[in-house]
Design a protein around this nucleic acid. Structure first.
Length: 461
RNA sequence: UCCCCAUUAGCUCAGUCGGUAGAGCGGGUGACUGUUAAUCACCAUGUCCGUGGUUCGAGUCCGCGAUGGGGAGCCA
């Protein structure tokens, strides 16, 4: 009985009469005249195990007075519980107080608001909701890697520090070692030639361009790493630091790209339902009543595909009035996306082939000359969850597009080189990992699905 | 960044017509042989976000500021 058993294993595999050593934290302590019940949780599972402590314990007085949050080592014998509420419980033979918690412990045996828990983000993962969120987050991250590994995708670590600031994907956080009080100047401008990298650099806003380079050697690749945007966005869906998944496939077109996105999202839905079922049932009961049904629907659905042009026609014929105008050439607003996936299709739908003027320079120009091979995957309740495209693999059209949008081709010469030598049709997409977690858990604020959220004016912990 | 709303006990909130503040939970003490966010009894707890103003008198009305939340834009 020297080896520690995790609570999850004790509850799922333990048998009455088995002697166990458990370590964890007290979630609740209930004391009666002759018995004390402790709900012990070690993070391995949502449900704690009930520890039964009786006055024979040498330190019973100490145990009976334990506060919520205390860290304990408990030895005991597993037994069938005579009371309702749990099948198994641990009759304690010894309870060692490893780390006491006094009455100032900030989490009480009651429901707290997410806003309050954000102010104690260093403690909140000891609560039911955040325990479940971060277990699911971890399990899904591992499943993302399994999904791509099974398909032969190479996992590439693209740079965090980059000098690309011309993708138009968002504001860059500056990385510098220059003296901010007295930066070197050349003709009035800050002289980045004297900076650490001898040029202006920042934190990456996307690994896509480097990912494309790797796809031209390994065929199928993906990135999964931190991404940074210095936008002053104050919404429930934006963070300054988040994790993004970006697969890229050589010898692939837009249809292949949509096939991959569909298989990917369905796989993660299926996985969450099957392998995180206890936490998912908790979310379904406490956070979002229709969650399991909705995720089950996506896992089984065949995703529809619709051209942007058709989407515009459908929206124009819609018997509802939108706040924003619907016109060919305008971007779809959130209300339009929700209508298409919820009312028109009633399930996940890819909107494909958008007007070139509302999309990025690297997207492949279609034969009609006015649309590009872009796609957005829309799902009920949230709208866009995945955005991707086939990339422009032809050198001259790519240079032309760069000039149109004001990007100096020489500044991305290495990117253009892939179009010079052995260029292939290729495609990929991007998925914000936190938005996936929000979708799969029903949590409505991105600050509640990332351990220590970084948003404007916030970099605590 | 823009618009709207909020800020009262440790937490979640109530506070009427402007008259000097309350509940539940949590905490403390006690009771209870098996509880399940235990129950019961008693006890304690306030810079009413800050600041300036109106008023005999401001938690309450007005201005400014801070912080939080929701929405928008941008996007992942």
């Amino acid at each position: 009985m020297t080896a520690r058993t995790r609570v999850k294993q004790a509850l799922s595999e333990g048998r009455p009469g088995e002697a166990l050593l458990l370590k964890g934290w007290a979630r609740t302590v209930r004391t009666g005249k002759g018995v004390t019940f402790i709900s012990l949780n070690d993070g391995s599972t949502l449900a704690g195990i009930q520890v039964v402590a009786e006055p024979e314990l040498a330190n019973y007085a100490e145990v009976a007075a334990l506060g919520t949050g205390s860290a304990l080592t408990v030895t005991g014998v597993l037994q069938e519980s005579p009371a309702a509420g749990q099948e198994l419980e641990l009759k304690a033979l010894s309870v060692e107080v490893v780390g006491a918690a006094d009455q100032e412990y900030p989490m009480q045996k009651k429901r707290h608001s997410f806003e309050y828990l954000r102010t104690i983000a260093h403690m909140r993962m000891r609560s039911n909701t955040f325990g479940a969120v971060f277990r699911v987050r971890s399990a899904l991250a591992q499943e993302v890697h399994r999904f791509f590994a099974e398909r032969g995708f190479l996992y590439v670590h693209t740079p965090i520090i980059t000098a690309n600031d011309c993708e138009g994907a968002g504001e860059l956080f500056r990385v510098t070692t220059l003296d901010l009080d007295n930066p070197p100047r050349l003709e009035g401008e800050i002289d980045f030639a004297q900076d650490f990298f001898a040029k202006a650099t920042g934190l990456t806003v996307s690994g896509q361009l480097e990912g494309e380079l790797f796809a031209q050697a390994f065929s199928d690749i993906y990135t999964f790493g931190p991404t940074f945007r210095a936008e002053n966005s104050n919404t429930a869906r934006h963070a300054a630091e988040f994790w993004m998944i970006e697969p890229e496939m050589a010898f692939a077109d837009l249809s292949d790209d949509a096939d991959l996105a569909e298989a990917f999202l369905k796989r993660l839905c299926r996985f969450a339902l099957d392998n995180c079922d206890e936490d998912m049932r908790f979310f379904n009961a406490q956070i979002d009543k229709g969650l399991v049904e909705r995720i089950e629907g996506v896992a089984q659905a065949s995703f529809a595909r619709m051209d942007y042009g058709e989407a515009i026609e459908r929206l124009k014929k819609a018997p509802v009035s939108f706040q924003f105008p619907v016109e060919w050439g305008l971007d779809l607003q959130s209300e339009h996306e929700r209508y298409l996936t919820e009312q028109v299709v009633g399930g996940p739908v890819f909107i494909m082939n958008y007007p070139k003027d509302i999309k990025a320079f690297y997207m492949r120009l279609n034969d009609d000359g006015r649309t590009v091979a872009a796609m957005d995957l829309l799902v009920p309740k949230v709208g866009e969850i995945i955005g991707g495209s086939q990339r422009e693999e032809r050198l001259e059209p790519l240079i032309g597009r760069m000039r149109e949008v004001g990007i100096e081709p020489d500044s991305l010469s290495w990117y253009l080189d892939t179009r010079r030598w052995g260029s292939t049709p290729h495609a990929g997409f991007g998925l914000g990992f936190e938005r996936l977690i929000m979708y799969l858990t029903g949590m409505e604020n991105i600050r509640d699905v990332i351990p220590f959220p970084r948003t404007p004016r916030h970099a605590e912990f």
